[in-house]
Design a protein around this nucleic acid. Structure first.
Length: 452
RNA sequence: GUGGGCGUAGCCUAGCGGUUAAGGCGCCAGGUUGUGGCCCUGGAGAUCGAGGGUUCGAAUCCCUCCGCUCACCCCA
């Protein structure tokens, strides 16, 4: 028996409501903020990720799905989204466009890790990237988008953590101080942290062992080492977030696992949640990345959110999700002649824009109606020998249980005029329109979030 | 890569040494000759994750492997 590869899963029909709900919300929100969609290849040249994410990071060291194609090119399944977008920005000369360039993506992401709750080898991320401006207002805009998305999806009780990790000008001094501090407490560090001291000192700060957390509380803070420009930038970000009413919590232990981050970094997850895969979204500024990848110096900021984690949180918070559309009409038949008539009628209905499920398999009427019922069809069209003979059909309302005989050539007309069909507008929008309420109700909703 | 928990029909679960592995959901069919949802009846569907061992006898005990899952590491 074949199984899906480890850490990768099928998204089955009964789970699609959550996914399309998220995708719709994402697209609507990006439109609201002026972000345009970009899709990049699932593979990139391996070097792109090594250079952007950082040679020494775990992602590059041990988590990439890499392969060589028949021409000997080294390719890697994308382990994150930002590098590809930056590559596309450079490759297509987007620096010639009005800046900043605002982009978003929804993409499958691949990392070779041990799967666990909220962590998969193939997962999906929605992310945005705003390229070409250092304006702290852009940082605030991106953070606002992330916060707003979660809120509009219906998630509550989230916390926003914020920090600034400085730039290449001021970070070295900080790292020096950090290493010096931890080196002087080396004896009380756990084994992992002993290694981190030389490999990835920033990560010393978010070790979860009690002893190390204790040390982290007393450790030097990035914000105390910011250069003047970075400090100014961070102050502005904070004040802009304030204007937007976003309840940011300063977290001096917040660092990110990718090397390209500079200045602003942030994460959003369930408040007070200490669970392992709690973070549902995170991001930050990366002012050197595009230059690093061979473009002209171009600053950027972005964030990404794990869609599987969104689904997990929507489920755990029992957020009501709009149901997927079910078919309007089920066409049942009895006998060969009726089958042909049913086929033709179903086709006509679809041409008229009415979703139809056709019966197949020559089963009894009882079985066919049972199927119409489980398919959640609003009504059934029944055709037998008598109906074929007089060119009529039985139209049965599956909710009311009533039925009537209508001439076959008037079926579309009768159906369109009946209240059995959902209004076309409701059909395409799924009857939902979240997050664009009046300013007043929006305000009160936000206050509710801030309080949690 | 390290550690814990778990593998019985499509799904959930009982059985924990003794005859043809039990129940619920779902599926299929009947209960009116051409009418669904509720109810009733019946049916199909399981080499009890795989291999090996102990035993007169193993789903049940032991070992190995595989898979799933949770946690560490890391991250969305």
């Amino acid at each position: 028996m074949y199984q899906a590869p480890r850490g990768m899963s099928d998204i089955l029909p009964h789970e699609q409501a959550h996914w399309s709900y998220i995708k719709r919300s994402v697209a609507a929100m990006c439109g609201m903020y002026g972000y345009q969609r970009i899709d990049t290849p699932i593979f990139e040249d391996s070097g792109l990720f090594a250079r952007s994410i950082g040679e020494e990071t775990d992602i590059v060291q041990k988590e990439m799905y890499s392969l060589e194609d028949r021409g000997g090119t080294k390719l890697t399944l994308r382990p994150e989204g930002t590098a590809s977008v930056c590559r596309a920005y450079i490759e297509h000369g987007m620096s010639a466009l009005p800046q900043p360039v605002r982009l978003y993506y929804v993409a499958a992401i691949f990392r070779y890790e041990r799967p666990q709750a909220g962590r998969y080898r193939q997962h999906h991320q929605f992310g945005v990237e705003a390229l070409g401006s250092t304006d702290p207002a852009l940082d605030a805009e991106v953070i606002d988008m992330a916060w707003r998305l979660y809120h509009d999806l219906g998630l509550r009780g989230l916390a926003l953590h914020l920090n600034s990790i400085g730039c290449c000008g001021c970070r070295p001094q900080y790292l020096e101080a950090l290493i010096a501090y931890y080196a002087s407490h080396k004896s009380s560090l756990c084994g992992d942290c002993g290694r981190r001291l030389s490999t990835n000192p920033l990560r010393l700060l978010d070790c979860k062992r009690d002893s190390c957390m204790h040390l982290a509380q007393q450790s030097p803070r990035t914000v105390d080492f910011l250069c003047q420009e970075c400090a100014r930038h961070f102050d502005d970000v904070k004040s802009f977030l304030d204007v937007l009413g976003l309840p940011a919590t300063l977290d001096h232990r917040l660092v990110r696992g990718l090397d390209y981050y500079t200045r602003t970094v942030f994460e959003i997850g369930p408040a007070g949640e200490t669970a392992a895969q709690a973070t549902i979204g995170g991001g930050g500024r990366y002012d050197r990345l595009i230059e690093e990848l061979g473009g002209r110096p171009t600053p950027g900021i972005g964030f990404a959110t794990g869609m599987e984690r969104l689904v997990l949180n929507l489920k755990s918070q029992e957020v009501a999700i709009p149901a997927e559309a079910s078919p309007e009409v089920f066409v049942a038949y009895l006998g060969e002649d009726a089958k042909k008539m049913a086929l033709g009628l179903a086709s006509q209905l679809r041409v008229a824009g009415i979703p139809v499920v056709g019966s197949v398999g020559d089963r009894g009427l009882k079985a066919q109606l049972r199927q119409a019922n489980t398919a959640n069809a609003r009504c059934a069209v029944i055709i037998g020998d008598e109906e074929v003979a007089s060119q009529v059909v039985i139209l049965k309302d599956m909710v009311e249980g009533k039925q009537e005989t209508v001439p076959a050539d008037r079926l579309v007309e009768v159906l369109s005029g009946s209240d059995m069909l959902a209004h076309p507008r409701n059909r395409s929008l799924g009857g939902r329109n979240r997050g664009v309420d009046s300013p007043q109700s929006q305000q009160s909703e936000d206050e509710k979030v801030n309080r949690v």
